[in-house]
């Protein structure tokens, strides 16, 4: 244990958790609106390829991230139209979306295998980066790390401090009552789904443009599923979402750091399980919050 530098470990945790945090905050808004979209993995990987393609074509990683958000949002609209207008089953449609997204991304990325994308520079924060301990942990990352945290903060503000946010929550809690009050349930949900897709796309692009950075088929390797789990873990609250992402990223980073430090006697297969077991354990201790009342139920405005 003594070989592990806590500053480096904490700094690693922030980075490891960023893609899942991005995807999870989008899904949180979707679920708060009463929609369960299990297609996060498919949207993430589509975002990963769109981001990479746009970034290499334009040379700008920022346009790449914009393209990833757009790609994720467009794909999520397939889900939105099917579930909101055609009232298809959300669980099955979401799973089908993942299948579709994996195929789509592989086709889109065919010409980009082995290509090196543009570099995303770290954000230089003079002053802040030199604060002892906090500086290296928090303030020496790329801009997306902060954008992700900013999105979480804005979502919290939106849900708790704005009228639109209250309407969204009302729609998620009881869509029939919300409809009776004259709120546009379907329109609002479509907007939430698009936001979820955009965020998942950003999360995917963070992998293909910053973390890895390269395009390879199937590169999200299950990150979308973890994002889904973290939303439940956070009991649909943005603050706890950050905690959940850090906890999960932390357990992953810690188990790798323990292996790298040498001289650990814990069998590695148990270390591999640790992030998942830790998540379950914390969930049991914290007790789960209640899911939005209309989560996953189809809405039909019968007049």
């Amino acid at each position: 244990m003594s070989n592990i530098d806590p500053i480096l470990l904490l700094s690693a945790i922030i980075v490891v958790s960023t893609p899942i945090l991005l995807a999870a905050i989008g899904e949180l808004v979707v679920e708060r609106a009463g929609v369960l979209n299990l297609g996060v993995e498919g949207m993430m990987i589509t975002g990963a390829v769109c981001g990479f393609v746009v970034a290499t074509a334009t040379g700008s990683p920022w346009l790449g991230f914009a393209g990833a958000a757009l790609g994720g949002a467009l794909l999520s609209m397939v889900f939105g139209i099917l579930t909101q207008l055609f009232l298809s089953n959300q669980v099955a449609t979401g799973l089908a979306l993942t299948l579709f997204g994996l195929g789509l991304s592989a086709l889109l990325g065919q010409g980009y295998i082995g290509v090196k994308g543009p570099v995303v520079p770290d954000l230089y924060l003079p002053g802040l980066r030199d604060i002892p301990f906090l500086g290296p942990v928090m303030f020496r990352h790329d801009a997306m790390v902060y954008i992700a945290l900013l999105i979480v903060a804005l979502v919290w503000l939106f849900l708790n401090r704005t009228r639109a946010g209250r309407v969204l929550r009302a729609v998620g809690e009881n869509h029939d009552a919300a409809h009776a009050l004259g709120y546009k349930v379907v329109r609002l949900r479509l907007a939430a789904i698009a936001f979820g897709g955009a965020c998942a796309g950003l999360g995917g692009a963070y992998l293909s443009l910053v973390r890895v950075p390269q395009w390879t088929e199937g590169m999200t390797a299950g990150a979308g599923w973890i994002a889904l789990a973290i939303v439940v873990f956070a009991s649909w609250r943005p603050g706890r979402l950050v905690l959940g992402a850090w906890l999960f990223g932390g357990a992953t980073a810690l188990q790798l750091a323990l292996q790298a430090s040498g001289g650990v006697q814990i069998p590695i297969e148990y270390l591999q399980m640790a992030p998942y077991l830790a998540t379950i354990l914390v969930l049991v201790i914290l007790r789960a919050g209640r899911a939005p009342g209309s989560l996953g139920r189809p809405f039909h405005a019968s007049s």
């Binding site: 592990i4 490891v16 992998l207 890895v212 390797a221 790298a260």
Partner: peptide, 29 residues
């Protein structure tokens, strides 16, 4: 010389490979 081995327990997961490399670098490799 000393070797530090990290088992990723996956054939293919680029993000995890990046983390593993980073963990090794952080550990002084």
């Amino acid at each position: 010389v000393e070797f530090r081995v990290v088992w990723a327990y996956t054939w293919f997961d680029p993000a995890k490979e990046a983390e593993a490399a980073k963990a090794l670098i952080d550990a002084g490799a």
